[in-house]
Each structure stands twice: as structure tokens, then as C-alpha cells.
């Protein structure tokens, strides 16, 4: 059943806009006031006049938006007032400092969840279900084949693979998204490691931001600071997928290539990309987690962003919920997942 009042949040050409409070959430063009769920490039874009985001992710936000951006740090659950609208930020469990944004106006509660996951992750605060009337959810992996295996077992697989490569003197190169996934992998790999860990130039500074925020991670080296004739024979190298096939890779002899992503759940994706191994590990919510979360919020209205929106909307509709897709520009970075 549609809700008759004008929507509290709706997409405009600048992004998701709350007219009553006069602010945007994760806008894709510069706006006067931007509330940001997390620091991934498709959600935190530079150029707006002022930004509001969770304190835990401030370092990452600063790196993404530049030193001159006006950043306001918000604590978890802290009440903010924008005109008649009250706003609070709640952990989304996606990456360090990721938030769901709760928006309340005249008794109606909306939650824009950004990206989120329900699986355990020691590098960020766990997702907190926030009761609401309208829940804006991602649909990146909203098909029933996407159910994540336990992180410990995937980490054990990676460890074993690394161990085998190291025994044969082959460098282990693990491609992963530079913000969030890389640090989660670092934290999950069981000790003792078969060799040293090296980070690509895109991964190293973000990892330092995590450490600066008090997240404990194993010690790492930067590839950029290693001597030209460095022996990477037993090393694990973490790099963004864009490094695959680049000249940067030439320094490693006979590297074994792996990719850590939710997309690796599908055999065709694994084989097509030409990696030796695919590891199923994602910072997005899987199918059972998505349905569980919708139930946890108690929302009657579900709005979907990026991914398999059509199928999710139809499925929820058949289950008696009012669901529709929201047009957004999120999820445009191919490496996400």
C-alpha cells in the first residue's frame, strides 16, 4: 500500500534529498549540506560545502574529500537537528566509520542504510538494526545464490593457498577493494603468516588510516618502499583489481593471483577473469542477511538502490511489502563487491 504523504527522502539530480531538513545523503554532485554514509568513492564525493559523517571514519573521509573540506564528526546515536528533522548515525558494518542514517520527521522514520553487511568484521562496528517505517537498502547481491560462507573458513583457505605458493617460491597476489576489504583480510588472516605482507600504493595509506583509528592490524610493508631486487618469493601482496595486468605486476615472478569478492561466488566469474583463485568474501549484505535485516527493521516500505533491484522489489512485493527501486548513481565502481 503506497504511503500518501510526500516522500521524506527522494532522488533529485544531485542525489537523495530530504527537503524538510534541507540536506542530501551521499550526493553525487556538490550540494550545500551532505550527510555521508561511508568513505567509498561512489558515496563520498568531493565539492560539497559541509559534510557530516561518523567520527570513526573521519580519517578516511579526510583522505577522500581533501584537507580543506568542512567535516563534522558525529558520534553513534547522537541526535542532530536540521530544522524540524532529527537525524542520527548508526553503524552499518560495511567499512570503518560506515553508517546508516536515521531521519525522523513528524513521526515518520526513514533509514538510509548506504552499504552494509551482517557478517562479523573486526575492523568496524557491527550493523545495528534500526526500527523504521521506510528502509532504503542496497541490492548489490539480492539473489538467493548469494550467501556468504563463514569468514574464518575463507581466511583459512587464503592462508593455505598462500602457504602453498610460498613453499614453491611464488608470490601470492590477492586483489581486493582497497578500502575496507583489504583491511578486513589483513585482520582475518590467521597467524603465523607464511611470509611478509606487502601493500600496493593504493592500499597502504588507507590501511594506515585504519591503524590511526585504533584498529589492530598485522604489520605490513609498502611495495613502493621495497628495493628494486626485493625477493617476494614468500610474500602476500594486497593490491586493487586495477593493478591486474599492469606493468606494476612485472616485479613479481610467476605470481599466483587471487581475487577476494562476493562476485567470486559464481564459477563463471572466477574462470572468466583469469585469476588462479577466487575467494568469496564481501562487505555487502547477502540474500539471507538482506531478508533478515528488512524483517529486523519492521519497515513496511522498502526502497532499493544499486544491484538486483528489479528482482528484490518484485519478491518483496509478493510478500506484502511496499517496495520500489530508487534511481541512484551508487555502485558505479566496478571493483566494488
Amino acid at each position: 500500500m503506497p504511503i500518501m504523504a510526500a516522500p521524506l527522502i527522494q532522488p533529485t539530480r544531485h542525489g537523495l534529498y530530504c527537503a524538510a531538513g534541507d540536506f542530501h545523503i551521499d550526493p553525487w554532485r556538490p550540494v550545500p549540506r551532505a550527510l555521508i554514509t561511508h568513505a567509498h568513492a561512489d558515496h563520498a564525493r568531493p565539492g560539497s560545502d559541509e559534510y557530516w559523517s561518523l567520527r570513526a571514519g573521519l580519517g578516511l573521509m579526510r583522505r577522500r574529500l581533501g584537507g580543506k573540506a568542512w567535516l563534522n564528526a558525529v558520534d553513534e546515536g547522537e541526535r542532530l537537528q536540521f530544522g524540524p528533522v532529527s537525524v542520527s548515525f548508526h553503524p552499518a558494518g560495511h567499512v570503518l566509520g560506515s553508517a546508516q542514517i536515521r531521519v525522523e520527521h513528524e513521526g515518520a522514520v526513514w533509514v538510509a542504510s548506504g552499504d552494509y553487511k551482517r557478517d562479523p568484521d573486526p575492523t568496524c562496528a557491527p550493523f545495528e538494526p534500526v526500527p523504521c517505517d521506510t528502509f532504503i537498502t542496497e541490492a548489490t547481491f539480492a539473489l538467493p545464490v548469494y550467501r556468504w560462507p563463514a569468514v574464518q573458513s575463507v581466511a583459512a583457505d587464503i592462508h593455505q593457498w598462500w602457504h602453498g605458493n610460498a613453499a614453491n617460491g611464488r608470490t601470492t597476489v590477492l586483489f581486493s577493494y582497497a578500502l575496507g576489504k583489504a583491511q578486513r583480510l589483513l585482520a582475518a588472516l590467521p597467524a603465523p603468516h607464511p611470509g611478509p605482507i606487502y601493500l600496493h600504493g593504493a592500499v597502504a595509506p588507507l590501511t594506515q588510516d585504519y591503524r590511526d583509528a585504533g584498529i589492530e592490524l598485522p604489520s605490513t610493508h609498502r611495495v613502493s618502499e621495497a628495493p628494486r631486487d626485493e625477493d617476494y618469493g614468500t610474500a602476500l601482496v594486497i593490491a586493487p583489481p586495477s593493478a591486474a595486468g599492469s606493468t606494476w605486476m612485472r616485479r613479481f615472478r610467476r605470481p599466483a593471483l587471487g581475487f577476494a569478492s562476493g562476485w567470486m561466488r559464481i564459477r563463471g566469474n572466477r574462470r572468466r577473469r583469469g585469476y588462479d583463485r577466487g575467494f568469496v568474501i564481501s562487505d555487502h549484505v547477502d540474500w539471507p542477511g538482506l531478508l533478515q535485516t528488512i524483517e529486523d527493521t519492521g519497515a513496511r516500505e522498502i526502497l532499493t538502490t544499486h544491484g538486483r533491484a528489479d528482482e528484490l522489489v518484485r519478491y518483496l512485493g509478493e510478500r506484502g511489502l511496499y517496495a520500489r527501486p530508487l534511481a541512484t548513481l551508487y555502485g558505479d565502481t566496478e571493483e566494488d563487491g
Binding site: 539473489l143 538467493p144 545464490v145 550467501r147 561466488r265 559464481i266 564459477r267 563463471g268 538486483r308 528482482e311 518484485r314 519478491y315 509478493e318
Partner: peptide, 21 residues
Amino acid sequence: PAWLVEETHQHVGDLAETVAL
């Protein structure tokens, strides 16, 4: 629902793999 199983099968591209996953 049958349509969702069918969409998922198409997304995966292989029936045995769809069953497995």
C-alpha cells in the same frame, strides 16, 4: 517463487551450480 529461481538460474548461467549455491 518459480520466477525468482528462473532469474537466478539465468544470472548464474548453469543449473547445477544454481542448485549447489
